[in-house]
Design a protein around this nucleic acid. Structure first.
Lengths: 165, 165
DNA sequence: TTGATTATGTTATACTATAACAAACATTTT
DNA sequence: AAAATGTTTGTTATAGTATAACATAATCAA
């Protein structure tokens, strides 16, 4: 049984997150007969370094350190591949990318983003989807892709702010 | 009684949309003792030319035509002002701006965006907000701002695609 | 191996947005 | 009305994000 989504729990074993993300990616690419090349794997690993979404240009120095070419297309191509396979999501309001904890089945992206610590955790709520589906159906709109980006304060940072106040 | 949101109805009187948006903006700025300067008013009017979100750089030529300076800061400043007053929304996934049909009371932005005709209509669904609020409460997250951008096919374009198929 | 396909390297450039400071204009106070 | 203050606009430069286009290299299939 794999571990649960850590959500905003600060004390989880993050090495575990990274390891599982890489394992899942490898098996998923094998199943789909796709190549998880060294560059793609490295970019995935870098994105998973934390639960804070990372900008494409933040990833470039690490690619250079690893001896790869590090012009923008390199990282954008890797990110494009990873997005297509559901392994990372792009957060439009931040121009940043974050690892997906359950890429096996495609799903649309929804995030709770803390404006204080910048962590973003995926939100996959049946009631939210249902409410959106109902609203769209009312006006005859056919949903293809949902982007939900909710900004606010995570539990930790909320406590911190109330202490400071 | 003002008119209703046109939604995806193609045949509405769009001059009416524009006129109402300008009237509302003027009275709202008067109430708030803010200056709806010629540039700001023009930018608002341009954004309202259609229900398709417009990029900032698309607006610049029209500013030049009207005899104003048309360097990027000009339009970004106007857009910033209009956003602060709730008169326009930014759509992050498109890097584009669209007029808000009911700027009187602040609200978070939600859109149904047609990938075929590019029209975007505001979505303000109590069930969606409620579902999001519940989900956030479950994990102790305090919502400050919601961004919902749903891409798909509007009724018109859906019909058209099914005819072509 | 040959040929086709996919991935990467490389250079250049497009697109989106803001910083910083000067000039013009409006508003309030004297 | 003049001076002082605050706000808006003009202007130049630059930061930040992303892709086009074409060459080379690696992989895969026949």
């Amino acid at each position: 049984m794999p571990h649960q989504d850590p959500g905003f729990e600060t004390d989880h074993n993050h090495q575990h997150c990274i390891q599982q993300a890489l394992d899942t990616a490898r098996s998923l690419c094998r199943e789909r007969s796709l190549r998880l090349t060294p560059i793609r794997e490295l970019v995935l690993k870098l994105v998973w370094q934390s639960h804070q979404p990372m900008g494409a240009y933040e990833l470039l120095p690490a690619l250079a350190d690893a001896g790869f070419n590090s012009a923008p297309p390199t990282v954008y191509r890797a990110l494009e591949f990873l997005q297509e396979q559901g392994l990372v999501h792009r957060i439009a309001s931040l121009n940043a990318y974050v690892g997906c904890p359950h890429p096996e089945h495609p799903h649309t992206s929804g995030f709770l983003i803390c404006r204080h610590c910048q962590r973003a955790v995926e939100l996959d709520s049946a009631p939210v989807h249902q409410a959106l589906a109902d609203t769209a159906a009312d006006v005859g709109f056919e949903i293809e892709q949902e982007m939900i980006e909710v900004v606010g304060l995570c539990p930790d940072c909320r406590d911190e702010e109330s202490r400071d106040a």
